[in-house]
Write a protein that binds this DNA or RNA. Structure first.
Lengths: 202, 202
DNA sequence: CGAGTGATTGACTTAGATCAATGACCGTGG
DNA sequence: CCACGGTCATTGATCTAAGTCAATCACTCG
């Protein structure tokens, strides 16, 4: 979610940075909301923990993304934010953001549009999570995350991370990728996945 | 999603109603966006169709809910809207809504807050979809949809509808409910499900 | 050089999808 | 008024794919 659109100088002036180590929590469910965070360095994941103790990954935010936008209108966070890597985040305090929005309607509009965008991408995610087949799920991910050429996907983080993001066991992901590679639908190359012509057929 | 908060008289004046028969499409993926719809009577579901031809239910909107909010900022719809029952919907045209927002910042603000709310509930939905166990999924649904007393859930529509909404086969849902009833965790009563004390334990 | 983690593969188990059949309950037209 | 077609609700049998447990290898970090 691009920050530029709704980020006014007044907001930036009120912001502050914070460093996180890999595994460190930025905030937890129920914490009082401070504001919106932008990822400056690294990756931060939003998760909930289900009763069996498993982490469910709601979102993985990379550099330039913002998280906790909804917190502007909520007194406390509704999920955990955990640094997946060492990371630096920038906090835009709630009050500063909200007051900037009342000053400049265009900012508010851009922010709203961004939220609308998020709603759509979350819907896509719901759709993806509805797919039971590991192969289809992986395909769905690959086609949704291919670069402009549609032939290449750059992996963020480890395959294990990806497995969690996809809601698959890491073993299932390894196996699925292995099968796709064996059948020639993809080629793997150190942090990247190349989609071959066969990718669509399978 | 409550309409009242952001619905100004100017918007209402520009709105119009439309009747739908059960199964009829309000709009389809790719259609040009007309605006936001409010459900006046009946239920409308938002779905996508995956490549195997299965419907994936993204959302079921009931009376008073609005759908396609994100369409304000998008040139075309990104999912299908199908009437689950005979229904009446009210269209608030894009232009009227957007211009009302520029007139009155509080409306825009309320709308934004509503979107933020939706983001959260979609996140919850993603979480739910990540649960593999049918029993846990059903439990998750029941606890998320219990009334104020926390002891009763009123079903909207048929069990088959619910199964689709939960992303389960209808057989799996029947079986799961049967087991829960047999173990005494729930009682069923014509369109309602009563949660007993045991409900939490299981 | 060990400890820790990721990547990978094998073996086994299980829960849910799928196919199938049945009964109940409409509404409808003859 | 009732037989008939349609849908929902329900249950049984079977199959498959993904989870789980477990072991191995490679790599990195201190």
């Amino acid at each position: 979610m691009p920050v530029k659109d709704w980020l006014a100088p007044a907001i930036r002036a009120a912001s502050s940075e914070r460093k996180l180590e890999a595994g460190e929590a930025l905030f937890r469910v129920g914490d009082k909301t401070a504001g919106v965070y932008e990822i400056v360095v690294g990756r931060v994941r939003l998760v909930r923990v289900d009763r069996s103790g498993h982490e469910v990954v709601l979102h993985v935010a990379g550099v330039g993304d913002t998280i906790a936008e909804a917190s502007l209108y909520s007194p406390h966070y509704h999920c955990d934010a955990i640094a997946s890597t060492d990371a630096v985040v920038r906090l835009y305090p709630k009050a500063a953001v909200l007051s900037a929005f009342t000053q400049d309607a265009r900012l508010a509009q851009a922010f709203t549009a961004m939220l609308a965008q998020q709603v759509m991408s979350l819907r896509t995610r719901v759709e993806q999570r509805n797919i039971r087949s590991a192969r289809e799920r992986v395909r769905h991910y690959l086609s949704a995350n291919a670069d402009a050429t549609g032939r290449q996907v750059t992996l963020r983080g480890t395959l294990k991370d990806l497995a969690a993001e996809l809601g698959l066991s890491h073993e299932a992901l390894y196996r699925t990728l292995a099968v796709l590679e064996r059948t020639g639908a993809i080629k793997r190359d150190k942090g990247r996945i190349l989609l071959t012509g066969k990718a669509k057929a399978l």
